[in-house]
Design a protein around this nucleic acid. Structure first.
Lengths: 119, 119, 119, 119
DNA sequence: GTGGTCTAGACCACA
DNA sequence: GTGGTCTAGACCACT
């Protein structure tokens, strides 16, 4: 479910955070569901457990997951706020790119046309 | 002509690369024109000449500029390929984001609507 | 495995590039194998790590090696193209010299004879 | 008659020396013939007169040209020694390249075959 | 310990 | 003054 890009400038622990969020948003992970243990995920991804631990710590801080010692780690019951944030940032990036294209002299008409075709 | 964002995760040398490309694409820098010397640009930006050198090295590698020892550094005569590449990568990023939004359950109709308003 | 010629007009970083390629071509370094870390090689050669870094950066650009942050640097899995390129450029240089000799009035017969003896 | 490579690691003044020698060897410049003045050649090549001056100084030192003040600069009457040197260094470079090819596992038979075809 | 980035400063050849 | 190379040393994030 989780794929990492070693060469990316985004640190691995942040990539894990994003991937977990993505999995939740796409419904692969559901509220209250248990997620892999730190060690398990670390082994699966071939990375250091400390890195996974850091990611889980951030996710818990953001109320996205919750660890119950000895029982495991679980998705929080409410996840709506993640959806909003994610959608907003997607739109912002799109608009940023469109403005870039406009600056390069491409008309709004052309952009929208190509986007619809490209999909 | 060139502005840097110190806080950005993008390294300074890459920001310079992007800024030079932007200046070319927007017509501020024209083919065969001389660009600031390494030392001059470094002084202007308040950074180390080696950082500028690195940017210029990459740009030369991409056939965007050409450095002539003891003469200075110049824009390559043919720069059409930069425009194409830039535009293509913009479109790719947009389409990637749109697909992300669709995966999150937002309809194409809604996306296009919001994009047009957001502009 | 790597030897440098301090007096050469070829910069050290290019000598390193050539030496790494040579080691690969001669089978001392094999695909996917790890090569010395930047710091290690720098110490071994008695030069500055930045110089090694520059060499490795060029080699990575040529798809010959691949650096994985915090993991080390490795030979790319496919290296056939290096052999081809190297052989081709050798032949080109030979043919260039032969043409030079011909232009100086030496017959092809004489050239080939001398080459076979000279070997 | 003279072409320069700005990007070459060989300094321009050395390139000029080589080019003059080449012109002599190929018969474009003959013994006792007058060659362009420093200023004239500098203008033609678009370079600094000091650079040409340096080349001419070396050539005079090697007894290849001779400057007679106010009259101009002329090719020396005897130029056989240049031919020998040039031919020898050509052969040396060829043999060096052939050895490189052998090291890469290409048989002498294959090399000679390809050279004859390649010509 | 690894690679990635950057600084500060030096020297070189060339023009 | 220009670009090219190299050194020495620093800091960073990640493991």
């Amino acid at each position: 479910m989780i794929t990492l890009d070693e060469k990316s400038r985004i640190p691995i622990y942040e990539q894990i955070i994003n991937e977990v969020k993505r999995n939740i948003l796409q419904g692969f992970l559901k509220p209250k569901e248990q997620i892999p243990s730190i060690r398990e995920l670390a082994t699966t991804l071939g990375i250091n457990p400390n890195t996974v631990k850091k990611s889980y710590a951030v996710l818990e801080n953001q109320n996205i997951i919750q660890s119950r010692s000895t029982k495991g780690t679980f998705i929080t019951s409410k996840i709506d706020h993640i959806l909003e944030e994610t959608v907003d940032s997607c739109y912002n990036r799109i608009i940023k790119e469109i403005n870039e294209l406009k600056r390069l002299g491409i008309s709004e008409r052309d952009i929208l046309e190509k986007i619809q075709v490209g999909e």
